[in-house]
Amino acid sequence: MEETKLISLTINGRSVEARPKETLLAVARRYGFNIPTLCDHKAVLPYGVCRLCVLDVKWGKRSKLVVSCVYEPGEGDVVETDSERVKHTRRLILELLLARCPQVAQVRRLAKEYGAAKPRFSVPEGTAIGERCILCGLCVRVCKEVIGQSAIGYCNRGGERKITSPLGVDSEKCIGCRACVHVCPTGALHFEDNDGERVMKELHTHLSMAKCMVCGDSFATQKQLTGLKGRTAVLIETLETCPACRRKRTCREMEENQFSGKQSKARGNSHV
């Protein structure tokens, strides 16, 4: 059997063990420590940009802040999760983010927790005051790593950096799955379903919806179904049936089979 060498370290004086390749954030959370993050999500690889997850690490006489979502602990690390330096850093980062997005409740809540409720910086003017994007990159990463479409991405550099559909026009690769809307921590992305059409607002993308072959309701975009047809072994009838009707069908079959003794055929899962 393969030997897994664990790494011994301490967090706030408590001895813990890290698995090889495990990040410090994962270890700390596994042991129940509460570490704030904004750009972290279990569905995607760590990106290390919000810097809220910083922790203080000491090696002998030296100490420095590490970004725990990308840092792999070393043997003998002495970690502090709430040192003055960590608290000061988190406070200022939240102050900067709140000054950028003063109307975002999620940021305001975290900022308040760390004593940054009133940013000392000037408030944005005009429409900029409604900015909701904190450039955490979760939308870009989920679309690339999980959905495989890379329909949304970054643009420009430095102070001008923003997230947008390529060329700022409708995104051909977008299938309207709304994974980006789902992972966004600040509600910066929106969609609207109207009359058989889904509009991915910030992506400037309009997608026609598919209708359920049983009840006629719009339940997914055409592109989502087309994409899945090529990728899974699920029967086409199942794909073209909305989740509600699929559940009804499955229940009916289960009832029938219960009395006839037959096994119900695999119908695929009920979520698209």
Partner: peptide, 15 residues
């Protein structure tokens, strides 16, 4: 530096 920053992390871009 604000022009040349890549813009990825908060302390640099917003700081």
């Amino acid at each position: 530096l604000l022009n040349e920053s890549c813009g990825k992390c908060v302390p640099c871009r917003e700081g």
